[in-house]
Design a protein around this nucleic acid. Structure first.
Lengths: 241, 241
DNA sequence: CGAGGTGTTGAAATATCTCAAGCGCCGTGG
DNA sequence: CCACGGCGCTTGAGATATTTCAACACCTCG
């Protein structure tokens, strides 16, 4: 029975003791609720607090000179914005909520003390960051070498597994509050094309995305189309539950 | 007068004292020469030594289930393979030399002692890793939202600037030992298409890539086509020289 | 009730790929 | 020294995936 998505998330990466979870809980006391479409971080900001998503979804994105948007990452409950980004002078992308979300903000200084004093936490944060980086690599591979159907399938696999890892998915279903436009901006496609791809996957009785939730009908075929190998998510130490 | 590409690279991120540069030099004593096409790291390996490229180029890549290759990163002199990746169980991509290269390998244990004892080094390594991550994000944006000409132009801008940052580029030219096939695998394109794009850029008198080197003819137009904004490379503290 | 965001569909336009062939260069082996 | 094979580059023509443009239906929210 874990009180907090951050703890649930990190405890997948390192065995945390009671003392550590207590520290994390305490650090997360400053919680705010934001509506969908609220910016947590804007490009060019001075990085200050570390945000942790406790409930809801967010995404990181970049705007290209021609006005196009590319989504770079999805933040699920327990995920946080890059901690050490403070070292850089300015942030090079935006982070925005995709749904109503409750978000804890931890003062950076406090954060660093916390990490330095607790080797298990250090390790958990490192791991988490490395997994993020691994996901970025995997996205590049997807954008570069997968066709649209495969790309959609792959992203759905990734997000489903990530949701399952934090205890937010059932056997064949999970929340997936993404509009087709958002999906398009994440996959480097057009909204219309995403629509057609989703139709194909539905007609083939493989998966169905609607009303903000994903239903996996034939998980084997889905993974096959996606060419999905979850290794890059570097599995949790112990499954949730 | 810097003896070593690693030092040159890191000193762009943090002011290193004589003591620190001496330590780094000493750590780099174990140097080997590899031919082009040699694998430094293979997917699934147990991560052990940290490799630093002293001379030559390397790249990281993934192989997709259908056999396709996607290049994920280019390693230039001074770049190194992810240090903290040791935390993960297994590496999820390959690293291969693209040219004859001289490579230092640092025992991981030694590395960690070094870092923990020297805050400036810690900072430099952090920064370096964050820049790598920033480059990954920028690649995703490129693959998702730029057309082939823009994508080629953008990569050339990035690599030129990175070469310049380590003192390996002249005003309008630098080494660029990439075959069109490699370029294609990095950009998510076909070798034939890369060829046609390069032709266009050459005919338009913007840049020319041949015999392993890049010549920039009209840097303004090149940056314009690319929509290049170098911020994501998070400039060095002091320019090389 | 109207407005705006989201999803749906069709038809035409276009970027990129695929397949296929030929060329030039370079290192190797006869 | 020449012939050969291999790799990288080049070019063409046709095929295909994805985009673009445009219209409409649906729903929620004010």
């Amino acid at each position: 029975m874990m009180s907090n998505a951050l703890i649930r998330h990190l405890s997948g990466y390192s065995r945390l003791g009671d003392a550590e979870t207590a520290l994390l809980s305490a650090a997360c006391k400053n919680v705010r609720e934001f509506p969908a479409g609220h910016h947590l971080i804007r490009e060019g900001d001075d990085p200050d607090p570390v945000f942790v998503i406790l409930e809801g979804w967010a995404c990181g994105y970049k705007i290209l000179p021609d006005g196009g948007r590319q989504i770079i990452s999805f933040l699920l409950p327990g995920d946080f914005c890059d901690i050490h980004i403070a070292i850089l002078h300015a942030i090079d992308h935006n982070i925005m909520t995709l749904t109503k979300a409750s978000v804890a903000s931890l003062p950076r200084a406090e954060m660093e003390v916390l990490i330095q004093a607790n080797p298990n936490l250090t390790q958990a944060f490192w791991w988490s960051q490395l997994v993020d980086q691994s996901i970025l690599r995997s996205w590049i591979a997807s954008m570069g070498r997968r066709k649209s159907v495969e790309r959609v399938a792959h992203l759905m696999c990734e997000l489903y597994i990530r949701m399952r890892n934090i205890g937010l998915a059932s056997d064949d279903e999970c929340k997936m509050p993404l509009t087709q436009l958002v999906l398009a901006d994440a996959l480097g496609l057009t909204p219309v094309h995403v629509n057609r791809v989703l139709r194909v996957l539905k007609k083939a009785e493989i998966m169905e995305l609607s009303h903000g939730s994903l239903k996996i009908i034939d998980s084997v075929k889905l993974a096959e189309i996606a060419g999905f190998d979850g290794n890059y998510l570097h599995e949790r130490i112990r499954p949730y539950g």
